[in-house]
Each structure stands twice: as structure tokens, then as C-alpha cells.
């Protein structure tokens, strides 16, 4: 039997580097709480079924689908949404390459790509494909998205060194999972 009264829980978490204390309904997904309670509407409700990736955010540096996580599960966790990636090199490359049409899927792609860049700065083609096939673009801008992602990962070594230094400093949002000993596997 479901309970008849809404059950609220206190939640303390860190979103885009800021500490947030909220009261959340146990049955609310993180997607809903980020959008409705914190006004972070960059993560988009698409399928709300784990299929499209429009709601992707980073939790402790790893991409997750916020429609598949309860807000109460986020106690103590570090989260980054597209709003926290204003200065991300991935965002500027997507803008430069015009890797979108309607733009609905774009935050999810950028967040996922940023997560990949932090975890695997030297990701090979296969790893890039593996990670990015988690996101769907209904306008089928795949050609431009592919070009943008290529540009991020094929940046000149000098550029990459700057990006990595900034990533380590947390300039593009906190990234606790980043480690010097990153592996190149998936």
C-alpha cells in the first residue's frame, strides 16, 4: 500500500558548488527537484524513462540520468548541472560548431561529454561512442554533435593541457571523481 500522506525528508547536497538544504518528497526524482525546487531547468524532462539522456547531470563527476534517481538518494553528494558548466570548453565548442537545432537535448550531451572529458581526457573513438550513445537527439543533429565532440577530444595538446589544468582546479564545476591516475578504459 502506498502511503496516503506525502513523506518529506531533509536533504543536504551540493549543486554546482553550492550547499543546498531542502525538504523533498521521497517519491520525487532528482530531475523534478532540480527543476522545480532549485530552478535549474537546464536538465530537461524527455522520456523520464532513462532512454533519452536529456536529463543528464554529473553526480560526483559521473553522468547519471536524473529522471532515474530519487532526490533523497542525493544526500551529501556533489552534483553539476549544465548551469554549472558555463565555462566548460565543451559548451563553447558546441556553440561554435552549432551542434544543435532545437537545443532540447544539448544540455544532456554537453554534461555527458564534460563528464567523459574529466574521466577520460584521452578517450578513444570507441570510448567516446560508448558514452555518447546514452543521449538521443530528436532533431538528428548527430553530424554536428559528432564534429563538436571530435573537436573537444582532438584539441591540440597545448589546448588540452590548459583544459585539464582548469578541470583539476575545478574551474568548470567541482569534480571530485577526477584523479591524476585516470585510466583509459571505459
Amino acid at each position: 500500500m502506498p502511503t496516503t500522506e506525502p513523506v518529506y525528508y531533509s536533504l543536504t547536497c551540493y549543486v554546482n558548488g553550492e550547499r543546498q538544504t531542502l525538504r523533498v518528497r521521497a517519491a520525487n526524482t532528482l530531475l523534478h527537484v532540480l527543476r522545480e525546487d532549485l530552478g535549474l531547468t537546464g536538465c530537461k524532462p524527455g522520456c523520464e524513462n532513462g532512454d533519452c539522456g536529456a536529463c543528464t547531470i554529473l553526480v560526483n563527476g559521473l553522468p547519471i540520468k536524473s529522471c532515474l534517481m530519487l532526490a533523497v538518494e542525493a544526500e551529501g553528494l556533489q552534483m553539476t548541472t549544465i548551469e554549472g558548466l558555463r565555462n566548460s570548453p565543451v559548451l563553447s565548442v558546441f556553440a561554435r560548431k552549432q551542434a544543435f537545432q532545437c537545443g532540447y537535448c544539448t544540455p544532456g550531451f554537453i554534461v555527458n561529454c564534460h563528464g567523459l572529458l574529466s574521466a577520460h581526457p584521452d578517450a578513444n573513438v570507441e570510448t567516446i561512442r560508448f558514452w555518447l550513445e546514452s543521449n538521443i537527439c530528436r532533431c538528428t543533429s548527430y553530424e554536428e554533435i559528432h564534429e563538436a565532440v571530435q573537436a573537444v577530444f582532438c584539441a591540440e595538446e597545448r589546448c588540452k593541457a590548459v583544459i585539464l589544468r582548469e578541470l583539476r582546479r575545478g574551474r568548470y564545476g567541482r569534480n571530485p571523481s577526477y584523479s591524476e591516475n585516470h585510466t583509459t578504459d571505459r
Partner: peptide, 11 residues
């Protein structure tokens, strides 16, 4: 949105 309420425990 989940259309009903439930309790959450984390042992």
C-alpha cells in the same frame, strides 16, 4: 512524476 507517496529508508 511518481503519482503516489512512499517512505525511504537507507540502512
Amino acid at each position: 512524476m511518481i503519482p503516489f507517496d512512499f517512505e525511504y529508508y537507507k540502512p
